[in-house]
């Protein structure tokens, strides 16, 4: 029994819904652009704060955060779709038709990735159009996008796991808020070294901080702690995959 037909079927359908319905496509596309505009545009003077040292400039500094944020939220928004499918009963069709049900989760994950790929492409074009400078080479950029891809998987597997446990769109705040908090408890506006007070303590223990710093390092051409960042991202990806897999088992036990 092949897995790919289920993965591709679910991914194609989910992606079609996500890209052809304005109420789904607009927030996914507009929010990252909006955050990028507001942060990179409104806060650019932060580069003059004593101790702020990021040669490519504040636009590139914020681009990395918004790229990771869009990756995580493309995953979360796809999780909303999973919850909606369970709420309106469509998930029953998938559970009944898919010989290997793990393919359903992988199909949603593939859709989340492709959905983010569209957002990331637009975001990157806009960033270069407004004059973003980069210091890293092609390998660094590949590193950045692979890291973001892992964040996308984490975002989806977390939200998808919640969606399959609660099976209602009313759980959306529970899927969204923790991701929002993890993102904003990282060094969003200035590097970790310039944070003070409680946020510094929180950011230091926040795994996303290291992923973000490595990502910014990639775009500057001197990525710090690359292995640690990838190990963290892969570790979180595996943990959240397991969370989603157990969520599928819960949904199966409940009959969809």
């Amino acid at each position: 029994m092949k897995l790919w037909p289920v993965v591709s079927g679910v991914a194609r359908r989910t992606l079609k819904n996500a890209l052809t319905n304005p109420q789904i496509v607009l927030p996914t596309m507009l929010f990252p652009l909006f955050f990028f505009t507001a942060f990179a545009g409104g806060l650019s003077q932060l580069r003059h704060v004593p101790g702020f040292d990021f040669p490519p400039g504040y636009t590139a500094f914020q681009f990395v955060f918004v790229l990771l944020q869009s990756a995580a939220f493309s995953g979360v928004f796809t999780g909303f779709g999973v919850a909606r499918d369970f709420e309106n009963g469509f998930a029953k069709r998938l559970l009944l038709a898919a010989p290997r049900r793990v393919g359903i989760v992988l199909g949603y994950a593939l859709a989340a990735l492709l959905r983010w790929a569209v957002v990331a492409t637009v975001l990157t074009i806009v960033a270069f159009a407004v004059g973003m400078r980069i210091g890293g080479g092609p390998v660094d950029l590949v590193g950045l996008y692979v890291l973001a891809m892992l964040v996308n998987f984490c975002g989806f597997f977390w939200a998808g796991g919640m969606a399959m446990r609660f099976r209602t769109i009313q759980a959306a705040p529970l899927m969204q808020m923790p991701v929002f908090l993890v993102l904003f408890f990282a060094p969003v506006y200035v590097p970790l070294s310039l944070l003070q007070g409680w946020i510094e303590g929180v950011a230091t223990v926040n795994p996303l901080t290291y992923v973000l710093e490595t990502g910014r390092g990639f775009i500057a051409g001197n990525p710090p702690h690359v292995l640690a960042a990838f190990a963290l991202a892969i570790g979180m990806g595996v943990a959240f995959w397991w969370w989603a897999f157990l969520g599928l088992r819960k949904a199966e036990a409940a009959g969809g």
Binding site: M1, K2, P5, V6, S8, G9, V10, R12, R13, K16, N17, N21, D85, N88, G89, F90, A91, K92, R93, L94, L96, A97, A98, P99
Partner: peptide
């Protein structure tokens, strides 16, 4: 299987549903 409450996606067309089902069933 045809369940008591039709398990359909309101955002897809009838043809989309059939294509999806055919893909899932290989």
């Amino acid at each position: 299987v045809a369940l008591q409450e039709a398990a359909l996606d309101p955002l897809l067309t009838g043809r989309d549903h059939l294509r999806l089902q055919a893909t899932l069933q290989n």
